[in-house]
Design a protein around this nucleic acid. Sequence first.
DNA 1: TGACGTCAAGATCCG
DNA 2: CGGATCTTGACGTCA
Length: 418
Amino acid sequence: MSIGYACLAIGVPDTKIKSCVIKNASCENLLNLISHNLNALENIIEYNIKNDIKLFRISSDIIPFASSPANKLNWQTIFEKRFAEIGNKIREGGIRVSMHPGQYTVLNSPDPNTVKRAVDDLYYHAEVLDSLRVNPQNKIILHIGGIYGNKKLATERFLKQFNLLDETVKQRIAIENDDKCYNIEDVLQIGNILNIPVIFDNLHHAVNPSGRVESDPHWISLCSSTWKLKDGRQKIHYSQQDPLKKSGSHSRSIEISKFLSYYNSHNSKDTDIMLEVKDKNCSAVKCINCLAADRRISRLEHEWSRYKYLVLEKSHPDYNKVRLLLKDKESYPALAFYSIIESAINKDSSRGDAVNAAMHVWGYFKEKATEREKALFLAKTDAFLMDKIPLANIKNNLWRLAVKYDEPYLLESYYFAY
DNA sequence: TGACGTCAAGATCCG
DNA sequence: CGGATCTTGACGTCA
């Protein structure tokens, strides 16, 4: 069983995927962007390996405008070597990757032009995975599309268009239930006809359930039979509802107690779980640590190094609670640890606590900062205390110092990322 | 026609 | 000048 996250890693230096607007999509600019993005992908993969994260979704933006006429580059050849190198790291790291064209890739549209774009986009995604030389267990996850007033006809169009694809693309595609049109029962029916794997997404299912009422574990178990040996382990998508946003919106972080009870309720423990959540890798590491067979406290200590200034900013009492909790080096209080952190992060910090945390971070630069930097920091904290500037202003300033003085401990801190 | 989702890039405004 | 705060982009469907 692997747990993973999608597209971007928070608080990991040099992993940002960049793009541009179409009018700036010159060959030169695109070459620079792709080269940059491949370096970023390599850094993400290395981070994943270091952090025991074995499942990762590669951003569709890795090649900007890849399936658009705006990009005429023969990127597959130009970057062949880089793709192969990164692919080697993926395979040697035992990582399973995937890609996920968005809601605008619609294979079953009645408009042939839209279908052509969708087909081009699917070939693009397959070419990225082919260039990495990862096997067909590394999937492209696709939604069925629109309904256009007649679900039966729209489904038939999907079946027809799918069958027209090359085998190299077909063998990578898995289909997923969506939050509006095709519920899990619809998707299972299509998956069984085409003999392709089906991904169960729990939040889409909650928002757009099948008329047939069954438990999530039941649907997951029905999906499991669509995953054949050649497809690799069954994969599901898991997310939680953001309590403040509209129905279907992904939560900021995975609430660990909820995740664990969901995990324990479904009996197929050997599924790969792709988390869809705003804080990305942070939640993935959290869930992985809570289920880790290797229960050494060093895992939590490493996490604490990334969370500590953020927790200190949000709540000094919670900061003290965690310090106490981590004192016993023989224990592994993962659930309690993350529960305190979740509770702290949801709090509004007092001005005093926020300045205190900023002072702790400032401690890294106190000795080496220039007079000008010292004066600026002090002026900013004063201005913040008098409600003249936002906290983000101080934190941006500290972030620049962390970059300038190259403090790896700070560069990896969630203090700047949340 | 605008909402939907996504989130940088890019533009503009502010002190 | 740096920094904060909008606006746009790029896609297709549906009300």
